[in-house]
């Protein structure tokens, strides 16, 4: 049997906004179970790259997620994107934001879904926020609810965009532990961040997405190779 080795396979992907080339001929893989940390200066296209992988915006080139080609406009059932702006559903409490995901994705009853949801809130130290509405949560709390909502999908691939941007020092450790545990469970995680705290917590080598697409590919591949050598 062919086991899929690459969770995400990116081949010669180019993204342009009008005249401007964000990256060109980008090629790299994220293996199943890999924790891939991406950094890069602001505006280098990290968010755009995640949105491309999630099937939200068009691109040139070829991407496969779990062996299936990514087509813009068709969301992939194997991955979950947790964006920089948590975009919680504002008419629902923190708890119900997560319960709705359980209810619709797993066909759980209302009470079952809420029970599961409170479990995810607990993991992220959010029990006191359960009944509050998104507008009544701090930026950091919103981000953690967004992460909890993502965890609730139980999907094999996580794309996390600046997940600790508004989170205070103590809670960063909680988020770090959650990500480490996803990694231990064998999930594939692509973490976009320029937060040194979280990078250190995860003890991972970040790869750099450079504004120059050709460079970016080189660096990612070189770093990849270097990493492989270190592991051997």
């Amino acid at each position: 049997m062919d086991r899929i080795k690459h969770a995400i396979q990116i081949r010669s992907v180019t993204k342009r906004f009008g005249e401007r080339v964000l990256f060109e001929n980008l090629t790299f893989d994220a293996d199943v179970g890999q924790l891939l940390v991406l950094t890069g200066p602001s505006g280098s296209g990290k968010t755009t790259l995640l949105r491309i992988i999630a099937g939200l915006i068009p691109f040139d080139g070829k991407i496969e997620v779990c062996g299936r080609p990514v087509i813009a406009g068709t969301p992939c059932p194997d991955l979950v994107l947790i964006p920089q702006q948590p975009s919680l559903w504002e008419h629902l409490s923190a708890l119900d934001n997560i319960a709705l995901v359980r209810h619709l994705l797993f066909k759980e009853s209302k009470s079952e879904a809420r029970q599961k949801a409170s479990g995810y809130l607990e993991i992220l130290d959010l029990m006191q926020a359960a009944d509050r509405f998104p507008r009544r949560l701090s930026g950091g709390e919103q981000q953690r609810v967004g992460l909890a909502r993502g965890l609730a999908t139980e999907r094999p691939i996580f794309l996390l965009d600046e997940i600790t941007a508004n989170i205070d020092r103590d809670r960063k450790e909680i988020v770090g532990r959650v990500i480490a545990r996803l990694h231990e469970e064998g999930k594939t995680v692509v973490l976009v961040t320029h937060d040194p705290v979280i990078v250190k917590l995860l003890k991972s080598n970040p790869y750099c997405l450079e504004p120059d697409g050709l460079h970016a590919r080189g660096i990612i591949e070189n770093e990849d190779a270097k990493n492989d050598r270190q592991q051997r």
């Binding site: 939200l56 979950v80 975009s87 504002e90 994705l105």
Partner: peptide, 18 residues
């Protein structure tokens, strides 16, 4: 309604009806 809220729902695979 901010578009991000609908986008998230779409990436989660919710149907148009949902």
């Amino acid at each position: 309604i901010p578009l991000g809220q609908l986008e998230i729902a779409r990436t989660l695979g919710f149907s148009r009806y949902q």
